[in-house]
Simulated assay, not measured.
Amino acid sequence: MLTFLQVPVNAVTDAATNLAETTTQQTEISALDFVLKGGVFMIPIILLLLYTIYVSIERYLYISKETKSNKNLMGNVVALLQTGQLDSVKMTLDNEDSAISRVIKEGTMSIGRPISEIESNMERVATIEIGTMEKKLSHLGLIAGIAPTLGFVGTILGVIKIFYNISISEDISISNISGGLYEKMISSGSGLVVGIIAYAVYHLMNSSIDNYLLKTQKAILDFINAIQRPNGN
């Protein structure tokens, strides 16, 4: 009797296992398929994401290169200026090749002119360097606003389509509504993610530029003091 009962029990267990595996296989979708369910607005959002990644990497490498300088650069320049070794100063700055070194080099080339003019020339070069660093960063600020908006528009149009289909088919089942709605919410979520990435990178890059500006202002002050007081008095 026990053996007789074991057969149906095992059969039911196997059937349940096979049904669960089949259901899992049917519900599992790739990440790409999941993203594409967000609708046509996912195409510009994905393009904005790729462009954001490109700008982020390109600007990070450029800004890191330009703002990286020898910590002893200004000390060496001041020491050389105090001893009147202008050729050595120029050689030191040429070897450094950074945004700050170009600002200091402009000041060195302007020695002999009024102090106000030297300072103005150095600040002008610093402004040009900052403008070069900020190139394309405004695009990230724009993407931070556009990407979430595209996502919301995609979701709204998707919801409109869902209710339009319901009005035609008169099928207001929960499964019909939720199935279509979750797909349309993908575009909103994706747009927000892209916007957050662009917003974060935009402010991080601007923070690095602000640090460069602070260092440059200090370097200009040290340079002006060095040529005004060549003996360090």
Rank of each mutant, 00 (worst) to 15 (best):
F41H: 02
N76M: 12
T216A: 11
P148R: 10
S98Q: 02
L5N: 14
K161D: 07
L221T: 15
K136I: 03
L192S: 01
F152A: 10
S169W: 07
E134P: 11
F34Q: 07
I196D: 09
L80N: 02
K90M: 00
I43W: 14
P8I: 04
A144N: 08
L192K: 04
R59K: 11
G189H: 03
T17E: 09
N76F: 02
Y202V: 05
L49K: 03
A226P: 04
S190L: 12
V159S: 03
N233S: 12
V194D: 00
V55H: 04
Q6I: 12
T92Y: 00
G232N: 09
S98V: 12
Y54N: 03
I224D: 02
E66P: 02
I43C: 01
G151F: 08
T132C: 08
K184L: 00
T3I: 11
I46D: 05
L93I: 02
R124W: 07
I45C: 01
D14K: 05
G232E: 10
I172S: 08
N206S: 14
A144G: 11
T108R: 00
F4R: 12
K218T: 15
M205G: 07
E119R: 13
I143F: 14
S30I: 06
N165I: 11
L48F: 13
I168D: 10
I146Y: 05
G112T: 04
S88F: 00
V7M: 10
V193R: 04
K184M: 00
I172K: 06
L192R: 06
G154E: 02
T216N: 14
G158L: 06
I168L: 14
G145E: 09
G131D: 05
Y60F: 14
G180L: 11
I186E: 01
D94I: 05
A147V: 15
L86C: 00
S178Q: 10
S207T: 15
G191Y: 02
L142Y: 11
I143L: 10
R59D: 11
L93Y: 00
S190W: 12
V78I: 15
V7K: 09
Y202I: 05
Q6M: 07
N18H: 15
N72L: 07
E134W: 02
D94H: 13
T23A: 15
G158H: 07
V7W: 13
I224M: 11
S175N: 13
N70R: 06
Y60K: 12
K68Y: 02
E96I: 04
S138R: 12
I63Q: 11
V159P: 04
F163W: 10
P148K: 09
I29R: 15
P8F: 06
T52N: 12
S101W: 00
T155D: 08
I53L: 15
P230T: 01
I186S: 01
L150G: 05
A198C: 05
K65L: 06
M42H: 05
Y60W: 14
I130A: 07
I172E: 00
Y164L: 11
S120L: 14
Y182D: 11
